[in-house]
Amino acid sequence: MRRKASLILLACAVFCAALSPLTRWYAFPRLARIPANQYQDVVLEAKNATLLDYGTMRARKVPEVTIVQTLKGDVTAAEKIEKSAHRPVVVWNALSYVQGPDGKMVSEVPERYIFDAHSQAPVHATGEMVDGDPVERTGIEFKWPFLAQKRDYEYFDAQTRTTGPIHYRGTREFRGLKVYYFEQTVPWTKVPMPKSMPVKGITPQTVARTGTTRWYTTVRRFWVEPVTGAPVYGEESHQEELRGGTLLGGRAKVTAFAGDVKMREDYVEHTVALVRHNRTLVLALTSYVPWGSLTLGLLLLALSLVLEARARHPGDPAPARAAEPRPVSA
């Protein structure tokens, strides 16, 4: 009986030992993926910002500028691209919508971002664009890979359509989560005018004919939860200028926008709660199940060996009791 139980425990130990690497190295890359149908939005605000009044072409202080960023997964497009890419793909149709304190549109810039569902590496396919301009991204955008590392990454900037390093600046704590802090500085760069302008009749083409150009610089900061690779908070010190040309009436430059853009508090709370939940799921695949099954396997193996040893070397039999002498009758 002991030997049979020992064999059963040994089989369970082997199963647990095999489950550990299978979960980490086989299941994790296949299960930890960005859903193709994911929808996400976030609202950012710039308090006491500077904004250009296109009616007067003068910069003025405003109490608030709001930026709404949406990411919407295109399942049909992803399935089509997967057939040629031979890997799981996510297609995000993104939109950055900027509105002034009066609620009117300042600019809107659409993007199509195509990437690997697990690694977040860009996937180049027809339709990849920023504001209608075809691009070929390198580096990451919006999200870090799962199990982010303490190192610099290449990060794509949609305004300049270029990729530059975003630097790891240390480990911090944010709302009870351990996060990696990253920072990127984009120097003053000439960038295209948005195709959607706030004044009817003004287009990038009409502005270009005046000789006026648009310039941009920013310092962006992200607090990234490393297990999920998801930013839990982000902010930018953002500046835009119009320079030269007849549109400015002889002035060398005018501020189009300047402000410190930060995530709105209710979206910070929602993002932190969502990341906490997803972090547990990723840890289950990378830590809890692999290490738990390995530990259980070792315990079962030890118990199996103990039972096997007892089955092979049973204890010495108890000494026989001496027979009592029978009484002798006279």
Rank of each mutant, 00 (worst) to 15 (best):
G55F: 12
P101T: 08
A17P: 01
D74W: 03
S196P: 04
A125T: 09
T189Q: 13
T246K: 14
G164S: 12
A36Q: 12
E82Q: 14
I166K: 00
V199A: 06
L303C: 11
M105F: 00
R60V: 10
P226I: 04
E136A: 01
G139Y: 11
G234S: 15
W215L: 08
P317L: 03
V254P: 01
G245C: 06
K253E: 08
L307I: 01
V186W: 10
S96V: 15
L296C: 10
F222C: 06
G176Q: 03
L283S: 15
V179P: 00
R2G: 08
G229Y: 02
G249V: 03
R326M: 01
I34T: 09
L242K: 02
T126W: 10
E225P: 13
P314Y: 15
A13E: 00
S84C: 11
V219I: 11
M57Y: 06
H238G: 07
P165W: 12
F257L: 00
P165E: 15
P21L: 03
K80C: 04
P194T: 07
Y267H: 09
T203W: 04
R243V: 14
T56Y: 02
T203E: 09
A258T: 07
L9A: 05
Q159D: 14
V275S: 03
R209L: 10
F28C: 04
A309E: 13
K83N: 09
P314G: 06
V272P: 01
T206P: 05
L9G: 00
A59D: 11
E241Y: 09
V186I: 13
H124Y: 09
S84F: 13
D116Y: 03
G297W: 04
A230M: 14
V232N: 04
A125D: 12
N48S: 08
R169Y: 00
K200G: 14
A121M: 13
A77Q: 07
P21R: 05
V272H: 00
W215H: 15
S237E: 13
R87S: 10
V68G: 01
E141M: 10
Q69V: 12
A273R: 15
P226T: 03
K4N: 08
K262Y: 01
E235L: 03
G297D: 05
V207H: 02
V289P: 08
